[in-house]
Design a protein around this nucleic acid. Structure first.
Lengths: 126, 126
DNA sequence: GTAGATGCAAACGCTTTGCCGCTTA
DNA sequence: TAAGCGGCAAAGCGTTTGCATCTAC
């Protein structure tokens, strides 16, 4: 936890992100945090998430359909899977593309990094 | 071109997207279309892009930092490369992941589709 | 006690909608 | 000529900011 002061709100927001199985949207973080801290305002979510993001304690994940989500940092490189049925986003531990970093394509693009999102059906929704 | 009527505005907007080398943002489409049709309003861009998107004549591409862009349909499966220096987005014809579709991960995720964005430096900016 | 955090509401920027005059077919 | 379309301005909506109050330290 970065930030100068520990507050109930910050602890709660961080805990919600910590415990998630995949990246969460601002609305999801708000909703889940409110269960423990009812009056928690949306501005506090934005401010805290921004702070955590700048302190590199959480990472931004943006899905190809434009949704912005956040997940805790330190998970190592991994990819995301979005279920087309239940709409949940899961983390996938393996990355078949690690070899890409540092290579140059035949068109002269130097690849430094990449982000991959897979779509389909999760085990539960098949 | 879908839509019931051919207008100067629609032709221009579609032409801008057609001629682009990579996906364009709404602002870029607006700016470039205005060169030929000066009074063209932003609402027309949004309405036309939405119409083209629904008619499946253009595709939505959303980058991991949350930017929404559009490019003409029918390009076949391909990936995107974003230059960290000049911020342009290019199309990359080859996809090292075509084999993924239809496979199931060991966690039981059935992969139907994927979207990959590469980051680095384009030939010009190295 | 005080700097910093929160909650509320106002401000902001991007996107969408309503309206009316204009244009395409 | 009439339904569709474009331009403008207002409305929406998610995000950010200002400010007074409250709280962690």
């Amino acid at each position: 936890m970065t930030g100068q002061r520990q507050t109930r709100q910050r602890r709660q927001i961080f805990e919600v992100i910590e415990r998630a199985e995949g990246p969460l949207s601002i609305a999801e973080i708000h909703e889940q945090s409110r269960r423990a801290v009812p009056n928690l305002g949306i501005a506090t979510i934005y401010r805290t998430v921004k702070m955590l993001h700048e302190a590199d304690e959480i990472h931004l994940v943006s899905l190809p359909d434009g949704e912005t989500r956040y997940e805790k940092a330190g998970l190592g490189h991994h990819e995301h899977f979005r279920c087309r049925v239940c709409k949940q986003v899961f983390d996938l531990p393996d990355c078949p593309l690690a070899y890409l970093s540092g290579t140059t394509t035949k068109d002269g693009f130097l690849i430094e990094d990449h982000e991959l999102t897979l779509y389909g059906r999760c085990a539960h929704c098949q």
